[in-house]
Simulated assay, not measured.
Amino acid sequence: MPANPYLQVSGLCKHYGEGEARVSVLHDVSCAVGAGEICVLLGPSGSGKSTFLNLVGGLEAADAGSITVGGTELTALTPKQLGEYRRDKLGFVFQFYNLVPDLTIRENIEVTAHLSANPLAIDNLLRSLGLYEHRAKFPRQVSGGQQQRCAIGRALVKNPGLLLCDEPTGALDYQTSKEILELMETVNRDFGCTIVIVTHNDAIKHMAHRVLRLRDGQLVENVANAERMRARDLTW
């Protein structure tokens, strides 16, 4: 258990379907991620990783258990309060960038900045992301890696306490994947947000403070790394 948990999950259960079609996706999952930690969540397809992320992100409701993020108990919130949680405390980065094609890189980030009471300075963020010189371009005019950087900026500009990343390197080549992971390190160091990265790539666990592994909906690994590797030194 981390000394200062920011994300705390206890007895989390989720199923889909009823009767003979009922499938248990998460069963009695309990874990905690410390404030300011990078956590990597591993597991094969169908292990419950994306469901876990959706529950923590307030996109789905748990059948049982509790989720606490930054002192907020998600399972006790009304739909309106869940929307405020997603707006104020959460950033979400997807494998496929989901950028608005008719908005520039800067405008794609500005869209979510307007949702926050305390957004980050956009020009400073663009520079940190290596996108300042591309700020007036449209998504189709930049590379996949630059589009993913924009997606990270869109999630980060709200100044969230928790950044959830669902396979953020899944659509990228090897070198670009490492650049995005290095950017995650920078984001964690410079902005102090807690980061949960869902991935199939076992090598990424070496850059994390904490490693979680799901198998058939159950948590089978929960360890803190005594020593971490820099993203630039990862190989796979």
Rank of each mutant, 00 (worst) to 15 (best):
D88W: 09
G71C: 07
G70W: 05
A3T: 11
S50P: 04
V33Q: 06
V93S: 08
A136T: 15
I122L: 12
L212Y: 12
V142E: 01
I105Q: 03
I195K: 02
A64L: 10
Y174E: 14
D28L: 05
D123G: 13
T199F: 02
V23M: 06
L53A: 08
A224Q: 15
D233A: 09
L99Y: 12
V211C: 08
T104A: 03
H15L: 02
I204Y: 09
Y174G: 01
A208K: 08
K80C: 09
V40F: 11
R228S: 11
C165K: 05
G11W: 11
G144I: 06
G217S: 07
E167I: 09
R213A: 03
Q218S: 15
E167Y: 09
Q95T: 04
E179F: 07
A35D: 15
L82G: 01
G34L: 02
G83R: 02
D173A: 09
G46V: 00
M229T: 12
F94N: 01
V69M: 13
R106N: 08
A21V: 00
C13L: 13
V142L: 00
H134M: 06
L120C: 10
E20N: 12
V196Y: 07
N159D: 09
T68L: 05
F96W: 03
S10Y: 09
G161D: 10
V142R: 07
T72Y: 06
A64S: 14
K178M: 14
I195A: 04
P44Y: 11
R230Q: 12
R86G: 11
E185S: 13
Q147R: 15
A121V: 14
N108R: 01
E133D: 15
L181K: 09
P101S: 00
K49N: 12
L120V: 14
L12M: 03
G83P: 04
